[in-house]
Each structure stands twice: as C-alpha cells, then as structure tokens.
Amino acid sequence: MTRDFTCIVCPNGCEITVEYEGKNVLSVTGNLCKRGEAYVKQELTDPRRTIASSVAVEGGVLPLASVRLTAPVPKEKIFDVMEEIKKIRLQAPVKAGTVLAADILGLGSDLIVTKTVKAR
C-alpha cells in the first residue's frame, strides 16, 4: 500500500509518499530531511500534535496568558487536553516558561506558559 502525506514538521511542507505493508514501512520518498521520514512513520502508527491555547489570568495587565505543549500528544487526546487547559485559572504575575501541568494526562508532554503577564 502507499499513502501520501504533507509533512507538517517545518514550513517546507514536503509531499511524502510512503510504501508500506501493515506496520512495515518499505520506502519513504519526497522528504527533504530525516525529520520527514520520522514524521510519516509516526503518522502511520500514532499521529501526534502539539496544541496552543490560553488560560485566564486574575489581576494581570492582560486577561490571558498563552500556553502550549512541549511535546506532541496523540491526536485523539487533543480535546481532552483542551478540557484540562480550560480548568486552569492563574493569578498574576505569571512568568513565561512556568510549567502549569507536568506530564499532562500522563501523555508525556508538559503544558507551559508562553507569555509573561505582570500584575496590575
């Protein structure tokens, strides 16, 4: 069997064709770098994505602090992770880089703050 992918690792967006039998990858073509090969192999067995969102901040100069995952999580867990993110309320000041949830839902990825919000 063959399957075509658009690689999302970097902006090159390589169009990669994978030839495979079951879980056995026979050939990978069209990728400009090794990361493309790793991406499609992952995509065939266990597609993963990182996500970004925001959490509410009380008493800050901004009402929101942006957050993101440090590593991709299984695609089907994205909305479960969003539910966890929505539960979080922060009190200013908030510092970029702060880990809000280590190993979120046991998925091997941390949720970190990406924007510093000073107290009002």
């Binding site: 658009t6 690689c7 999302i8 970097c10 902006p11 967006g13 169009e15 994505r49 695609k75």
Partner: peptide, 12 residues
C-alpha cells in the same frame, strides 16, 4: 496559505 496549515489546521 502553506500546505502544512491545510493539513494541521483544516484536515486534522
């Protein structure tokens, strides 16, 4: 836009 965004923002 970029093909990767068609993939990860729409197709996903």
């Amino acid at each position: 836009g970029l093909p990767r965004n068609v993939e990860q923002c729409l197709n996903d």
